[in-house]
Amino acid sequence: MSTTTESVAFDTRAREKAADTFGMWVFICSEAMLFGAVLLLFFFARSSYGPAFAAASQHLSLPLGTLNTAVLLTSSFAIALAHMFTASRRWRPAVWALICTGLLGTIFLFIKAMEYASEFKEGLAPVLGAPFRFSGPDPTHAELFFAFYFAMTSLHALHLICGIVVIAGMLLLWPGTTEAKRTHRVQAVGLYWHFVDIVWVFLFPVLYLINRA
């Protein structure tokens, strides 16, 4: 078939593009249900053990969390720019924007890893049988909070890692990719990346900002 479409099923590029966008959105909605389910569990736990969760949340690093949110928002901006550049066929800036996106994602993971490390050091990580030491009033349910924290942030980080790998792969294949396919892939990856960003936008206040006042 013609080389302008990726799939034999479509006869025109435009139809395929619309289908791709729609397919990506359907996938994103599916992913939203995944995170929604975990959030649901979190909200029930928080409504039962509010004070313990508030006390535990204070032990997360607000500066690092805020910085990371800014980093991720910037990465979203970068990949949105990449998409804009591909639309006007400016390939060089597009590549740079993609590289920025991947780097910012990596920085996010790096900061996250630092947070994890300090939480391990403080004995706040009930993971792999590590001892949990918490001086607040209700250590049992504070432990539950940290269980949620690690489950949710690691699930998010896993998604981010997938995104970085896909961007890296896309950049490696970039020279041999036709122009139409470049646009098409940047858009698809961009939608995914923005979604992962949105997930963090919810995780940040839900985990870090309980009762900071």
């Binding site: 249900m33 995944l34 389910a37 736990a45 009930p126 049988g129 049992t140 349910h141 432990e143 690691s154």
Partner: peptide
Amino acid sequence: PVLAASLILIVLERVFGIGIFNPALGG
């Protein structure tokens, strides 16, 4: 995806000890 969420939490609990459903923690 909702099934996926509940299964991954089981795996996290069994493998990594992250006890979201653990009744001893209030799960």
